[in-house]
């Protein structure tokens, strides 16, 4: 069993906590001038996304989680699973709905995504920071209104709904920031 000593703790380090893979968000060393030292960490449960706090005596070892991030290309959804492919080895991998999570509304075929693997299986999918998606439906565009003031909802090709400026019309390609879920601009050709 691979372990990490508290002196290797840093943000991003992956640990097994209560049977779940977790990632350290923050590590604080509580070391008094006299007396026992502790490492107080904030950890994100990579299955649930929940952030909790834990304390360890400094010098202890904690089980490591076999978690790695891979860059895979999104291929298609077969109704139950989302299929990804390694761009060089062409190895394919399927992620279930839980692993895909919120990324579902940003996944566009052929986009490169970060697929987090735990013991070799997809645990989480992170879409690219920016995606370009076509508008599937929105109220008619107001011609000539490029002021950007006000806005309206638009449904994108993936089903995501975002606020867009009034001048955006159906069929236009938009650049979206997936971290905030916000419209950035029209996609430039």
């Amino acid at each position: 069993m691979a372990t990490h000593n508290t002196n290797a703790f840093r943000s991003g380090l992956k640990l097994m906590i209560d049977g779940d893979p977790c990632s350290i968000v923050e590590n604080e060393v509580v070391k008094p001038g006299k007396g026992q030292a502790f490492n107080r960490i904030k950890i994100r449960n990579l299955k649930t996304g929940r952030v909790v706090e834990r304390t360890y005596k400094s010098g202890e070892s904690v089980e490591a989680a076999d978690v790695i991030d891979t860059e895979l290309q999104y291929l298609y959804n077969d109704g139950e699973q989302w299929h990804f492919m390694h761009p060089e080895t062409y190895d394919q991998m399927a992620a279930d709905k839980v692993a895909v999570g919120d990324a579902i509304k940003w996944l566009k075929e052929q986009d490169m995504c970060t697929v987090t693997l735990w013991n070799g299986s997809p645990l989480a999918v992170t879409p690219p920071n920016f995606v370009v998606l076509a508008v599937a439906d929105t109220d008619p565009g107001l011609k000539g209104d490029t002021s950007g003031g006000g806005g309206k909802p638009a449904t994108l090709e993936t089903g995501a709904v975002v606020q867009v400026p009034l001048f955006i019309a159906i069929g236009e390609e938009l650049k979206i920031d997936t971290r905030t879920g916000k419209y950035v601009s029209r996609a430039k050709d």
Binding site: V30, P32, G35, Q36, F38, R40, E53, T55
Partner: peptide
Amino acid sequence: GLADVLNLDEDKDRFLELLFSH
């Protein structure tokens, strides 16, 4: 929420230090 940080056979002072520092 600080159960299991220390072994139960550890000194009383370690428990005081844990509570104090947190």
